[in-house]
Design a protein around this nucleic acid. Sequence first.
DNA 1: GGCAAAAACCGAAACGTTTGCAATTCACGA
DNA 2: TCGTGAATTGCAAACGTTTCGGTTTTTGCC
Lengths: 341, 341
Amino acid sequence: MATLKQIAEACGMSVTQVSRALNGHSDVSESTKQRVQDAAEALGYVKNIYAANLVSQTSNQIMVIIEGMEKDTNEAVSSNIFKLLQGISSAAGKLGFELVIHLKNRHNAIDYVDFCRSRYASGVIVYGFNFGDKQFLALQDSSFPCVAVDILSEGKTNGCVVVNNVYYSQAAVSQLLDVGCKCVACIAGFEHAYVTVERLSGYAIALQSHGVEVEHGLIRYADFDAEKAKGTLAELLEAHPKIDGVFCMSDQMALGCMELLHEVGLRVPQDVRVFGFDGMYLGRFVSPTLSTVEQDFYEKGTAAVRLLADIIHQKRKERTVVVPCKLCVRESSTAKKDEKQ
Amino acid sequence: MATLKQIAEACGMSVTQVSRALNGHSDVSESTKQRVQDAAEALGYVKNIYAANLVSQTSNQIMVIIEGMEKDTNEAVSSNIFKLLQGISSAAGKLGFELVIHLKNRHNAIDYVDFCRSRYASGVIVYGFNFGDKQFLALQDSSFPCVAVDILSEGKTNGCVVVNNVYYSQAAVSQLLDVGCKCVACIAGFEHAYVTVERLSGYAIALQSHGVEVEHGLIRYADFDAEKAKGTLAELLEAHPKIDGVFCMSDQMALGCMELLHEVGLRVPQDVRVFGFDGMYLGRFVSPTLSTVEQDFYEKGTAAVRLLADIIHQKRKERTVVVPCKLCVRESSTAKKDEKQ
DNA sequence: GGCAAAAACCGAAACGTTTGCAATTCACGA
DNA sequence: TCGTGAATTGCAAACGTTTCGGTTTTTGCC
C-alpha cells in the first residue's frame, strides 16, 4: 500500500510537503499540489486513518448506539430504527462524519465511554435507553457530545431529538372522544420507556379536558407488540365490555387490536374506534384504514446529526430539537354515525 | 487518557512488559500480570485502537456495505435489512469482530476498496448490489474476504448467503395452480435485481411444469413497492380480465394488490388468489391472511458473518450458504371451492 | 544588483502500540 | 560454587501520519 513516503520519493520531495499538499494547506504551490495529487492517484494512495487519527488525537467518527436490539425486535420498530439510521447516515455523509454503529445485544456489550475514548469519537448518538441507565448517565457525564433520540437529555455537551408525544397523544384521544367515544382504553408500550410515559400523560390530559375520569383498569402495557396487544385487549374487553375506543401507542399494536375486534365480531369503527401511533406505511392499506400519528424517523436522524455537529462546534445553545408529527385521521377512528346501531 | 507508559511507570516496569501482560502473552509471570491489570483498572486504561492497528497492520473490523439506501426505502425492505444487521451484529459480537456499517446514499459515496484498505479491514459484507456493479466487482477482485447477501458471488476470497428463490417461487406458484388458478400474473421487483430474476425463473418453471405457457404480458415490474404494485395490477386486470392468481415478489406488493382487488370488487381468494414473499409479521393480521414465503434475515446475517470468519481463517471450501425459507400457505391463496361462484 | 519579505519547502519529533532480539534473573542439579 | 537452560524482562525500532520550527528559494522593489 502506497504511503506518503513513496509519493515523496516519486515526486522527489519531503514527506512533510506531500502531507501538506494532500491536506490542502496554504503554504504549498499549486504546481506541486497538482504533481502530488497525480502521483497519489497513480500509486493508488489512500490515507491510513489509524496513523492520521493517532497523531491528530481526533477522528471524525460519530458513534451510534442502539440499545436493546435482541433477535425478536418487532418489524415496526426495526423499520423505524432503520429509517433513523438512514437519516443519520445521510446527514453524517453530508457533514463529513464517519459512522460506527453499535446495535447492542447480549453478545456484544461494551463500555460506551471507553469505546469513545479508545477512538477519539467526535460524538455519540444514542437510542433506546431509559432514564437512569448507568451507561446512559456515564455518556451524559462524559466529555463526549451526546445526542439522545426519543428521550430527554440536557447538559453542556448533551442534547436530544424528540417529538411532542404528549400533544399528539392528546390530539389522538381527543379525536376519539370528539366522535362520541365514552370509554377509551389505552394499549401502552414498554412500561418504563420515555415515550410510553409521555403518551400516557397525553391520554390522561385528553380524558380530563373532556371531563372523563382516568380509569387505571383501562390502561395496559403490551410492549409495542401486536400479538400481546391482541391478547391484552381481549382481557380488557372481558373486564370492560363498554369499551368503544382504543388508543394504541403503535400501529403494530393497533393492527393487533383490529384483528381481535374482527375476531370477536366487533366492527371498526362502528362499534369500537381505534387510533394508532407511528404512521406505518401499511396503515393506508388495511381495512378500515388506520388513524395514526405519523412520525418521521428519517428526519429525527438528520436532526440528531445536525444537533450533534452544532454541539461539537459549540454553536447552538438550544439543545432540545422537537421534530413535528402529523395527525392522520382515517377510517378506523371515524364516527360513521349513519351506520351506527 | 492513560497509556501503557503510565501504567509502566506506576508498576515500575517497561512498556513492553505491560503490553504483553495486557495481551495475555505466555512469557510474563502471573504476579506481574495481576499487578498490571490492577494498575490498568485503577488508571482507567483503554487501548488506543489507532496505535494498535497501525503497528499490527490489522484490525478486527468488518465493513458492512448496504447499497441503494435512499430516503424512500420502503418499510418492508427497511425492516428486512435491519434484521440482517441485527444478525450480523450479534454474530460479529460473538466472534470478536467490530462493525463499521455504511448505508450508502447519494451523500456518502466512497470507494469501498480504498475504504477497506485505509483501515485494514478483516472482511466485507455487502447487500443490495446488482451483478456487474463496478464497485462490487472491485471488491470481489480485491484481496479482502467478501461475502454478498442475496446475490451470488464466488472466488478465492468471496462467498455468498442466499435463499433458494427459484425453488420457493416455484412452490408458491405451483400452489396457486394446484388450487385451480388458470391465469397467474406476476408482480416482480426491481428488474435487474438478482432475486427478481431468480423468482421469475421459478414462476416460469412452475407454469411450464403445469403445462401452462408463460405469457410475458402477465409479468410486470413494480420495484417492491405497494403503491406501484397496486397501479400495475390495475393495468394488468384491464388487459387480462381472466387473471385469477397473482404471485407477488414481496408481501408489501401483495398487500397493495389485495387492496386494489378489494377496491374493484374482486374477492380474495374466491375470485383471485394472492401469494406474497418475505413473511412479514403483518401478513398474519390482514384479512384474508396472506400466503407467503417466509425468509429469515437475522439468520442470513449470522450466516454471513460465520462464512466471512471462515474465509478469513481459510477454513471452509464451500462458499455458498443457502438459508432455508418456509412456505406459508394461508387464506389468500386457498381455494375455498364451496364459496366459489 | 542587492535586500527584505513572502512563498515554498524540509528535518525531526511525536502519537501509543507491538515485537524481534538481547539481556537479565532464577531454579536447580552437579 | 558454578553452569545450564528456562523463565522473565527491557531496549529500540517500526507502523504512517501530522506539525513545529527552521531553512531555502523566489519574488518584488528600490
